[in-house]
Structures are given as structure tokens and as C-alpha cells.
């Protein structure tokens, strides 16, 4: 096996693990919810992405077989990570009254979709606020 390919695969694995560690470290270190959200959504997708690329390259170079189904996990994670972050952020601004006070105006007469009181939802809003 060419030494350059081996070196590149090893580097990809270590870089991926480093970004995963940074993502989890950001989650543990940063002081408030919205800041914590930045760590996992970014660092972990690139972390898993580069480890999966390393896995594909490993199958191609070492075992000599074409195995690109790791691409499916990468694609799935890149599609779902923003959705997860979006849902968590929406739930957070709905539940946290202090965060809600900090939001900028929308620039039109309608409010933000999560907080805009549509018929029958105002009671619900009060019920799910953070105690």
C-alpha cells in the first residue's frame, strides 16, 4: 500500500476525531444554550464526515473494494444536522423568556413564527415556558 495514502487516511481519522472532541468540548464549556448550539452542529458533522471519507478511502486502498455507502451516512447527517439545530433553537426561544426579550424585530408587522400568537395557541405558549 502506498505510504502517502496511508498517511492521508490516518490524518483524516485524527482530524475527524479532533473535530468531534471540539464539538463536545464546546457543548460542555460554553455558558448559554444558543452558544452551545454552535459547537455540535458544526464540528460534529465535519468530524463524522472526515472519518467516513477515511473509511471509504481505507476500503478502496487497503481492501481494494469499492465501498461508497458511507456516503449515505454523510449525506444523511448533512441533511439532518440543520433540522435538529433548528428544532432545538425554536424550542429554546419558545421556552426561555429572557432569550425572547433579546430577539430583534422581524422588519414587518408579523412576529417570529414560533412566537406569533395564532388562534388558540397562547395558552399553549404559557404552558411550555421554562419554569
Amino acid at each position: 500500500m502506498p505510504i502517502v495514502a496511508e498517511f492521508l487516511i490516518a490524518a483524516l481519522i485524527v482530524v475527524g476525531a479532533f473535530f468531534l472532541l471540539v464539538g463536545s468540548f464546546a457543548l460542555a464549556k460554553l455558558p448559554d444554550m444558543m452558544r452551545r448550539l454552535h459547537g455540535p452542529t458544526k464540528a460534529t458533522t465535519l468530524g463524522v464526515g472526515s472519518i467516513l471519507i477515511a473509511s471509504m478511502a481505507y476500503a478502496a486502498v487497503v481492501r481494494g473494494t469499492l465501498s461508497i455507502h458511507e456516503l449515505l451516512i454523510t449525506l444523511f447527517l448533512f441533511l439532518t444536522a440543520p433540522v435538529t439545530a433548528f428544532m432545538v433553537a425554536k424550542a429554546h426561544i419558545l421556552r426561555d423568556r429572557r432569550e425572547r426579550a433579546k430577539l430583534p424585530p422581524t422588519g414587518s408587522e408579523k412576529g417570529w413564527a414560533t412566537l406569533d400568537p395564532s388562534p388558540g395557541s397562547t395558552d399553549e405558549l404559557a404552558g411550555f415556558e421554562r419554569k
Binding site: 426561544i93 422581524t106 413564527a113 395564532s118
Partner: peptide
């Protein structure tokens, strides 16, 4: 991180 969309 995108957080919310306005109602309109």
C-alpha cells in the same frame, strides 16, 4: 445558526 422564520 438559523433560529426561526418570521410568520409571513
Amino acid at each position: 445558526v438559523s433560529t426561526d422564520l418570521s410568520a409571513d
